[in-house]
């Protein structure tokens, strides 16, 4: 089932570029499995259905299908198992967007915000010139 999950995650969040493969190949599957909670039986039945449909087409399982056949089949099964793809995709995003390689590709350092923090430009308070001229904005009582 992990093999199928990984192949599905690669469809949901495909390779970003040559550096970063799809979410499944990146290893997000393990994270998704820990996060599914109540949705795990829904996920299991969806993945089982994907493999069964793949076998109908002569493949060993979903991951064995030619790549161009995977997305259309996923669409079909998604329609028959409402919430299946949505919950996998949600958790895939949560895992993917904290992965160090992905975070680095977004232009961030792969570290927690604390303790190094970030430099931030103070900004130009000269932009307040017109506001300062506007006169009192509060009412007298």
């Amino acid at each position: 089932m992990q093999r199928t999950l990984s192949a599905v995650l690669d469809e949901l969040i495909p390779a970003r570029d040559e550096e970063i493969p799809g979410a499944g190949s990146l290893g997000i599957g393990a994270f998704v499995e820990t996060q599914l909670g109540d949705a795990s039986s829904l996920a299991a039945s969806g993945l089982t259905a994907l493999d069964a449909r793949a076998r109908d087409r002569g493949a060993a399982d979903f991951a064995d299908l030619p790549t161009e056949e995977r997305a259309p089949l996923l669409d079909e099964v998604a329609a028959q198992h409402p919430g299946f793809v949505e919950s996998l995709f949600f958790h895939a995003c949560m895992g993917y967007y904290q992965n160090p390689a992905v975070v680095t590709a977004l232009g961030l350092e792969p570290r927690p915000p604390h303790p190094d923090g970030y430099e931030l430009e103070p900004g130009d308070l000269g932009l307040l010139a017109d506001v300062r001229k506007s006169g009192k904005l509060y009412r007298d009582v």
Binding site: L120, E121, P122, G123, D124, L125, L127, L128, D130, V131, R132, S134, G135, K136, L137, Y138
Partner: peptide, 28 residues
């Protein structure tokens, strides 16, 4: 701030950053 009676605060303002400046220009 013209929206308030004069007041004194002990610390300088938080940085605007690029985002704050962008929005400030929108208000201006």
């Amino acid at each position: 701030d013209p929206a308030y009676p004069p007041k004194e605060l002990p610390l300088p303002p938080v940085p605007l950053g690029k985002l704050g400046e962008t929005l400030a220009r929108g208000f201006n």
